[in-house]
Design a protein around this nucleic acid. Structure first.
Lengths: 139, 139
DNA sequence: ATTAATCCTACCGTTTTAGTAGGGATTACA
DNA sequence: TGTAATCCCTACTAAAACGGTAGGATTAAT
């Protein structure tokens, strides 16, 4: 299951991508428009900023903004920041690899085999889609 | 993340597929061989039986067995029984559809669009793989 | 100085996960 | 007919994750 955190984060990013101009957008504005609890969204945007995807401006008239063009922001990066590993099992994760404690031989493991295939196909989708693709209102 | 339940279930099914002959296999045998807590595995095999994937024989010399040839058992079915919906979001689930409570227009939702693509690619993998493919020791 | 915003930490109730415990029902076999 | 092995079922539990909320510190514009 996709967490609310990720879902809300994606919606917020889409909102920012669609927002014209480069003036920072306030959390409250996004929260209201996208039906997201404001305080919850605050934390989400904070982690997006810490990861380098968003920038922020403090104080009055402050807010958040994208640090790159939407077409440069890959879904793999966003998903890893918000949702964590893309692989469904740590033993097939590229960025968060971990050995299974059961499972004596990884290469003989049937789950391993299947999850590598799932991962590769998911990666293909997430690598081929940028925030610009999501923000596009057409189809 | 794949739950332990699903992981253990897949391993158990693989074990059964590899077991020669049609004599039922006991939970204890599988548990020991695959490093799975026996009592936990008991429950998992029970749900697999209730879903129709496994059959069982009670009493002494009882155990579990596959009800179809491994090549007939699709990963989509197994995953839906053990892990639940394949889609990451209920609003793109084929078998477990549910409307989002936020999100006024599903078709305008960027998350929806992305998750449909992910789902379709995952489905492709799971539909094209049977238990026979998993059990195959080669590559 | 006031106001409006981000930033940060801590907390909290609910649900899910990953089991464990204990026994009932059924069957093989001596 | 008795006993051991096995599946079957319910209930319980500790720990983690999820989905927030609360309260205030900090920073910047006016």
């Amino acid at each position: 299951m996709l967490s609310k955190k990720t879902k809300y984060g994606l919606k917020a990013l889409t909102f920012l991508a669609r927002a014209e101009g480069d003036a920072p957008v306030q959390v409250g504005t996004i929260a209201k428009s996208e039906n997201i609890p404001q305080k919850f969204l605050e934390g989400i945007l904070l982690t997006l900023r810490k990861s380098g995807i968003l920038g922020s401006k403090k104080g009055k008239h402050g807010g958040y903004y994208l640090r790159q063009d939407p077409s440069e922001i890959k879904m793999t990066d966003v998903m890893r920041v918000l949702e964590g590993p893309i692989a469904m099992v740590p033993c097939v994760s590229l960025n968060f690899y971990e050995k299974c404690d059961d499972c004596p031989d990884e290469h003989a493991c049937s789950v391993h085999k299947l999850m590598i295939m799932v991962r590769d196909n998911t990666l293909k989708v997430l690598r081929n889609n940028t925030l610009a693709d999501l923000s596009n209102t057409k189809s």
